[in-house]
Simulated scan of single mutants.
Amino acid sequence: MLHIGCHLSVSQGFLHMGEEALSIGADTFQFFTRNPRGGSVRPLDTDDMAALNRLMAEHHFAPILAHAPYTLNGCSKTEKTRIFAREAMADDLRRLEYLDHCRYNFHPGSHVGQGAETGIDFIADMLNTCMFKGQKTTVLLETMAGKGTEVGRNFEEIAAIIEKVELQDNIGVCLDTCHVFDGGYDIVHHLDDVLTQFDTRIGLSRLKAIHINDSKNELGSHKDRHEKIGEGHIGIEAFTQIINHPALRQLPFYLETPNELPGYAHEISLLRSLYKE
């Protein structure tokens, strides 16, 4: 079975997101833990979260994905920004303990001229500060397109962060199809080779989620501009191979394409039609 969902707004609550997911044929979804361009967060409502847990169990949801805000930059050269990142991540992870089968995804951040090695050290330190023994949530590093001074622009940088994390059982990766394509990994013509590289450098056992997005830009552009499925430079044929690949087909897929709810419903239906049971 293809496990697929899209990005939904938490503004109306957790149970509402679960109901919205079901209404468009999804069996999972992604949401921002707090204002994606700021840091404000909804009041904690454990009853609402428990109601979502019951709905997900009843309808056999795949793991859902909590996305950290874009403002979270644990490797910034500015100490104030790094402090915010640590405080936001620590708070997010405490809150997510109330949700069942939830993973936490974040962009590693930008080193802003300090160099990737320094950025990697800062990110690992943040993770080791915020993660705690016994936590339910697996934290996922997202693969990045490599624009500017982003850390995580290749599999080697992701692996270098993971190697420094103390709680190895709670760390994994979310692969973004647009990001890796824009980052220079040819998932259109050489998907097997890309996955072999991932396995060699990181390990496929670390791969826990896929952001499934087409790209407005060509291979290796380092631009990070998402496109609707089949309307970009990755294309339908490649996505058919991706969702059916033996190493990927059982993973949850999350759409982050430029869509409203009806558009997501269309893409979910399209991808389900391409999935080989």
Rank of each mutant, 00 (worst) to 15 (best):
E166F: 14
I161A: 00
C178M: 12
E166A: 05
L219R: 06
K216C: 03
I229M: 03
D186T: 05
I212G: 01
E157Q: 11
I158Y: 09
G183E: 13
E231I: 02
I187H: 03
G230F: 13
K216F: 02
G203K: 09
F198R: 02
I158K: 02
I171F: 11
A160D: 15
N170H: 06
V194H: 03
D182K: 04
D214M: 01
L207W: 05
E231D: 06
N170P: 13
G220S: 02
I202L: 11
R225L: 12
T177N: 08
D199L: 12
H179P: 06
E166M: 11
G184P: 14
L167H: 09
D182L: 04
V188C: 14
N217F: 11
L195H: 07
E163T: 14
D169F: 08
V188I: 15
N170D: 13
H189E: 06
I158G: 08
F198C: 01
R201S: 12
I187W: 01
E218P: 14
I229F: 06
D186G: 15
F198I: 07
T177C: 14
H222E: 10
H211R: 07
V165S: 07
D192S: 15
I171K: 02
L207A: 15
D186L: 10
I229A: 14
L195K: 06
T177P: 02
Q197W: 15
I212Q: 07
F181N: 00
K216S: 02
G220V: 00
R225P: 00
L191A: 08
E156K: 11
E156C: 04
I212C: 10
L204Y: 08
I162S: 01
Y185M: 06
E218G: 09
G230Y: 03
E227N: 04
V180G: 05
D199Q: 02
D192G: 15
A160W: 07
I171Y: 00
D182S: 11
Y185F: 06
A160E: 04
D193H: 12
F181I: 13
F181E: 05
I210H: 01
T177V: 08
I187R: 07
S221F: 01
R225N: 05
E156M: 10
I161H: 05
L195V: 15
G230E: 06
I162M: 15
I229E: 01
E163N: 04
G184D: 09
I158A: 02
I229W: 12
D192T: 12
L175M: 09
N213P: 00
V180D: 03
